[in-house]
Amino acid sequence: MKILLVDDHAVVRMGLKVLLNAVPDMEVVGEASEGDEGIKMALDLLPSIVLMDLSMPHGKDGLSATSELKKQLPDTEILILTMHDDEEYLFRAIQAGASGCVLKSAPHQELIDAIKTVCSGNAYLHPAATRRLMDQYLGNLKQDQQDLFQLLSDREKEVLTLIAKGYANKDIGEKLVISVKTVETHKSNLMEKLQMKTRPELVAYALKKGLLGYGI
């Protein structure tokens, strides 16, 4: 694994070089102190992975350099090194094309594992970031479901509840005093609004929303 270090602190680069060169199959092939220099060296050295500092006050910063480098060397992996334990920086790094993010405060073994993971073609996020990403994803999913439910009319919610209780279209029509064709229209609208395709999906959704008096 040929590694290029891009960090504005010479002491940090020295420490990383000593650490990584002691690992079998890893070799630091170059060092750069800012983004533009890092891009130039990467084009010359063609490293397997670039360890990119996120915050570099002089020259191109880590995010800009990552984005530019991925355009020119799409097969080169980039692992962001940062002091910021913040999902905003994480999202921006991923959007820029980075394959992962490691805190500078992380143990040495975590950094080594992260490099191996990224070089094998997988993404790497430090554990705290992974937890926050999962929480945010689940939160967004829950919010999306709540928003979709709000799109339903009162009549559609009634039809959904009766579908979940196992009533056939004809029975639903009799209970609500509407035609079978109208029931089918409501059912079609339900599926479209909730982005579902089958009756079992509607039943499962109704259960989760507690429309039968209990949720799962």
Rank of each mutant, 00 (worst) to 15 (best):
D7Q: 11
K116C: 11
E68A: 07
Q136L: 08
C101V: 15
D147M: 06
T182W: 04
I216A: 09
D7Y: 11
A98W: 01
K197P: 03
E68S: 07
P24N: 09
L133W: 04
I115F: 02
D144A: 09
Q146E: 09
E34Q: 08
S64T: 14
V203F: 02
D86E: 12
L54I: 10
L194S: 13
E37N: 02
I39F: 04
Y205V: 06
H126L: 11
D8I: 03
R92S: 05
D8M: 06
V180I: 05
P74L: 03
K208V: 03
H9A: 12
E201F: 10
V18K: 13
L111G: 06
A128H: 10
K157S: 08
A93F: 02
N122W: 05
H58D: 15
Y214H: 12
E37A: 00
Y89K: 01
G30W: 12
N169W: 05
K165P: 09
Q146A: 05
E201K: 14
I3N: 11
G15R: 13
E110S: 13
I115E: 06
L138E: 13
L51Y: 07
G139E: 02
S55I: 13
G15W: 12
S67V: 05
N189R: 15
L152K: 13
C119Y: 00
K208M: 07
L5N: 11
N122G: 07
L190A: 11
K60E: 15
Q143V: 04
K116E: 15
V29E: 15
D44Q: 04
L207R: 15
V28F: 08
V11A: 12
Q150K: 08
I80H: 00
D61W: 01
L160V: 08
D154M: 10
T198M: 04
H84G: 06
P200F: 09
P74I: 03
Y214T: 14
S179F: 01
S55A: 13
E192T: 08
K187C: 04
G173C: 11
P74N: 01
G173P: 05
G139C: 01
E37K: 00
L207E: 11
H126V: 11
E87L: 12
E27D: 09
Q136E: 09
E158I: 04
I80F: 01
L90F: 05
K70V: 03
H126K: 11
A128T: 14
T82R: 03
M56V: 05
E37I: 00
L202R: 08
I172F: 05
S179L: 02
G210C: 01
H84Y: 13
M41A: 07
